[in-house]
Each structure stands twice: as structure tokens, then as C-alpha cells.
Design a protein around this nucleic acid. Sequence first.
DNA 1: GGATGTGAATAGGTTCACAGCG
DNA 2: CGCTGTGAACCTATTCACATCC
Lengths: 224, 224
Amino acid sequence: MMTKKANLPGKAEASDKAVGRLVLYRKRLAGIPEDARRFIYSHEIGELCGVTSTQVRRDLMLVGSSGNPNRGYERRDLAQSIDEFLFEQRRQKVILVGVGNLGRAVLAYVSRRSPLLVIVAAFDSDPAKTGRVIMGYRCHAMTELGDLVDSQAIPTGILSVPVAAAQEVADRLVAAGIRGILNFAPVTLRVPHTVYVEDIDLAMALEKVAFFARHGRHVERMHV
Amino acid sequence: MMTKKANLPGKAEASDKAVGRLVLYRKRLAGIPEDARRFIYSHEIGELCGVTSTQVRRDLMLVGSSGNPNRGYERRDLAQSIDEFLFEQRRQKVILVGVGNLGRAVLAYVSRRSPLLVIVAAFDSDPAKTGRVIMGYRCHAMTELGDLVDSQAIPTGILSVPVAAAQEVADRLVAAGIRGILNFAPVTLRVPHTVYVEDIDLAMALEKVAFFARHGRHVERMHV
DNA sequence: GGATGTGAATAGGTTCACAGCG
DNA sequence: CGCTGTGAACCTATTCACATCC
């Protein structure tokens, strides 16, 4: 029998952390000047990212890239492989809900930094904002949210609304078929477990830092 | 012999993840109405935070709190214990460097949300900003940075300056004796390993979400 | 010689299972 | 009974060690 590929054997599944690091490698590679050396060693990538060289090589196994002993990895080629692995080279649409202080900062921050992700619309419930162009993005009324996500099959949403509205908006996003949410609202969202949620709570992040600032412990790095 | 307490036996060392969860528990406890039930079970905390009850109890062992079979944990008491563990109940000073879009959002976000952390000053290199009050915080010139951190023994700094300036500012913070940095600049900072750094790169976080949105995998939650 | 790629060993974190309590 | 507290089992992630290649 065995028609079900449950756990598709042979193909290694990328963990949350591994994906996080791959995104990081990709970003740091992009930061290297175009005219720098054509090849790069795993230990150099490691230094750039605060990761051991073994870890880098282990992660790169996932993308199926392949380096050359003695010369290392061809930079452009490697970047391409990682893009392929992460996004299949295709652009992916994103929407943002909640154009407050934080929402605006995110709009400003993300544009230009992620060429393979495009924010296609922003939403806010405040009538004073809807219709206007903010940080280069047109702000729509919340009523249009469901339709747009659904009709354009938007997979990813950024949630930067006040706590009070967060769960309700999340519900609407889920109902409209969203697959992943980057959540800045300080609340644990209830969503079906098919939807991936990454929470960023700035206050909590700061408290964690404050704790370890006092306790002077270890180095462990991971960019979100 | 055995004078060296290497690994100080008996006292469990809190891991990065455990601390993150404790911060989360504390935050969610704070969100419960004052007049709600006086006791709470580990499985209730777990539901509130998206964590298993075993995990909650395991983490609470670290703070040395103690629940009561049959009734659970006394809410106020527990919150107090966690505060004690995380911050020894004392207020801790924080500064912020870089009052751009993101810096402003962080200022607005953190104030009121972390009663035990107080932002004591903001800094920016733009003369148009220095001297003014932004989001309720007075903005100082960068020249005052080292002195203030040093003289007031500020342990924790928020870094929300442009990439180009990040490493230099980090160096100055370190020289002035900072112990922990919350870094929003999209660069891996080089700091002595006695300094704790937590990186938050919004673009990277979004890319991670976009990846898992396409790959529909697992639930794993962790609020930064 | 110094790098890659990777099985094997290790460390770290989570869940299980259950004793003990109220 | 259903909960807490916790040793032990388990599972995941990282590092080691080394065969292999240029």
C-alpha cells in the first residue's frame, strides 16, 4: 500500500530555527558588495551571522546547494539556491493590518529589504487613514480586507492592530484563507494549527534582554 | 578539594527559552482581570500562552514558586514570584538610541507595558530631534550617550539606528558598560560575549512567516 | 592543507509517567 | 480524584570527528 507519503521519507524537513538561519544567511550574503570575492567559505558566513561553520554547512545541506572544497561556495549561486529553497524564486504577496506607529515602522522597514516579498495593501479601521497613502502604501478600509485576501489568495499577513482588535482581525484573516501571520499584538492568538503564527512582542523582548543584562550569561544569537 | 563551584550544583540555570516563557506567563497573568478567580492551574496558564501544562510547571520550578495541588497557583503570589525572579522586583533603567520610525514605535509600545522597566532617555544624532520631547521622552544628543550610560550604570539599551551606524553605536554602548542590547538594526553586531544581544529583524521575521505560510507546517509558538 | 559533507556523539529541551498531596 | 512537582525517557538541535575532495 503505502500511498500516503506521511512524513515524506528521505526529504529532510526544515525546522523553524534552520529556516530562520537560512533567511539570515541570505540577508548577510545580500549585504556583501557585488564586486567582492566570488567564493565564500562556510566559516566566513558563520562569522557574518554569529553561527558556527558546521552549523552553516548543516543548514546548507537543506537547500541542496553544494560548495567546493578549497574554494567554498559560489556566492551568487548560493544566494540563488537559498532564494529557491525559501521562496521558489517567486514573489509572494503580503498585507498589513493596522497602520499605527508600529505598522508604519514595519511598512518603512520591510519595503526594499525583502525583494521577494511585496506588501500589496495596508488596512486600518480609522476612516481618517483609509484612502490615504502612508509610507508609500495605500490604506484600505477594513471592510475590504476579507475580499482582497481571498480573491488574491494572499498567504501572509502582518498584524499590528491594538490588542483589543487582534483576535477578531486574526479570525477574519483566517476565514479569508491566510496561511501565516506575523503578530505584533501582545496576545496569544487562537488560530487553527494549519496557520503559522510568529509573535513579536517588543515589550517582552526587552524584558528578556533586561534579564540577561543582569545575569550576564551566554551568547546565543538568533535574529528573531 | 573541589573549591570551584563550576556549574554551581543544585541551582538550575535558566535557559533563554525558559526566560522567554516566564516573561510571557507574567504578561498573560497581568492581563487577567483583578477580580477573577484567585487561583489558577498550570493548564490554564498553558492555554493562555500556547504552552503545555507540564512545560509551565517545569518553568515555574525555576522561580521557586509553589502551587497547591487541588487549587493551583495563587495568581498574585505567582506574579510576584516571577517578578522577583526576573527583576528582583527592582526597576531597571533602559535607554533607546535612534528615534526614527521604529524607535518611536518602540517608545510608544514599551511605555506602560513593562512597569519594571523604565526608559530613562532617548538619543538621536539628528539635531532637529535633540532637545525635543518625542513620544513622551526627551531626546538627547549622541554626545551625551556614553556619559549617561556610564554614570547611571544603565544595563540595557535599545538600538534602533540605521544599519550604517549600528556597530559604532554598539561599540560606544559597550564601552560605556552596557550589559544587554535589543538590536533592531539588520546587522550582526560584534560585541564581547559578556554582552547579551537579542536581534529583531522585522524583514527577516516576515520572511520566515512567508516560508511557513507556503509550507503549512507545525505550530511552535514563542513570543520572541 | 584546508575545505566540504555527513554519520555518530553529545547537549539541550520537552514530554511522559507517576509519587505525593490536599 | 485531579492537581503539583519531578526523575526518567524521549526527541530535537548542535557539535565532533573524519572520510573525501581540490
